[in-house]
């Protein structure tokens, strides 16, 4: 089972122009742990990164941690990175060979998922509640005149969280990415930085799947299950705590380093070679 990650620096530069791209230490250690765990339990990994992100990785010799190497990520220039901050994922998905697992850089998979994915067409980490504040009705979006939502889409379908996304079939992948990109290209300029992105990424997917008669397997059906499972670590909103709470941040990094040392000594050596972790503050 192949897995891949992606790094698109354009959203970063919106917030920090005229700086060099960088990953914060907690982001970086999570990625190292994620790659190490995936390679141990599931298979080979690859990183799709745009020029700035690639330079960042290469400067630290981190391209070597991905057994399938790194590849230059290209995202259409007319996609607004402020609105579609995760467009890089979809563009990377378009470049990857199927079947594969798309993994967020803040997600760690602690066990083999190959057996579970056998005979599955599409799998996601969990489904989402159809909260109208986050997933509003299609009329919410100001689309360019030429755009029409496909007639076959059922907007009552629960969204699917793609922190982990498994796709078996290249044809479905092509259809999903094409629809997502078409939506991104057709959305009128907006200041809404949440709803359009999650629509393109997490709502178009299940609607496309349903329109093609594909079942989506979810590792967790309910949000509550996420608290009980022992398969994934998803840093998710905890990143905010790590950003603003230095005590938590240090504790988190130390915990990750200890886990690397205990279970992934090679990756631990890599981490300790990085200035970020030579002194944990």
């Amino acid at each position: 089972m192949n897995g891949f990650y992606s790094l698109w620096s354009a959203p970063y530069f919106l917030k920090k122009p005229k700086t060099a791209f960088m990953m914060q230490d907690f982001d970086l250690i999570t990625l190292l742990l994620s790659v190490a765990a995936f390679e141990k339990y599931n298979g080979q990994t690859k990183m799709y990164a745009d020029e700035a992100a690639l330079a960042y990785l290469k400067e630290r010799s981190l391209e070597k941690i991905f057994s399938r190497g790194v590849e230059l990520l290209s995202v259409p220039g007319d996609i607004d990175p402020a609105v579609f901050w995760a467009a890089g994922k979809l563009c990377a998905l378009q470049m990857e060979q199927m079947p594969c697992v798309m993994i967020d850089t803040d997600l760690i998979i602690w066990q083999s998922i190959g057996k579970t994915l056998r005979n599955k067409q599409v799998a996601v980490i969990h489904r989402e509640e159809l909260n109208p504040e986050i997933y509003p009705a299609p009329e919410h979006f100001q689309m360019q005149q030429a755009y029409q939502f496909p007639a076959g889409w059922d907007f009552r379908v629960q969204p699917a969280n793609t922190a982990l996304l498994y796709l078996k079939d290249a044809a479905f992948r092509d259809a999903y990415v094409a629809e997502a990109l078409r939506f991104m290209h057709s959305l009128a300029p907006t200041t809404d930085h949440l709803c359009p992105m999650v629509f393109a990424e997490q709502r178009i997917l299940p609607m496309c799947a349903q329109a093609r008669g594909l079942h989506i397997y979810a590792f967790c059906d309910r949000m509550e299950q996420l608290r009980e499972q022992n398969l994934f670590t998803h840093i998710w909103g905890h990143k905010n705590v790590l950003k603003f709470n230095m005590d938590e941040r240090r504790a988190f990094i130390r915990r990750c380093l200890k886990r690397l040392q205990r279970e992934f000594p090679q990756m631990y050596e890599t981490a300790m070679g990085l200035a970020e972790f030579q002194e944990v503050f």
Binding site: L33, W110, L226, T233, H234, G237, N240, N245
Partner: peptide, 12 residues
Amino acid sequence: LIEEMGYGLDLI
């Protein structure tokens, strides 16, 4: 909320 904003954090 410190322990509620991510999941599986205790697995690390």
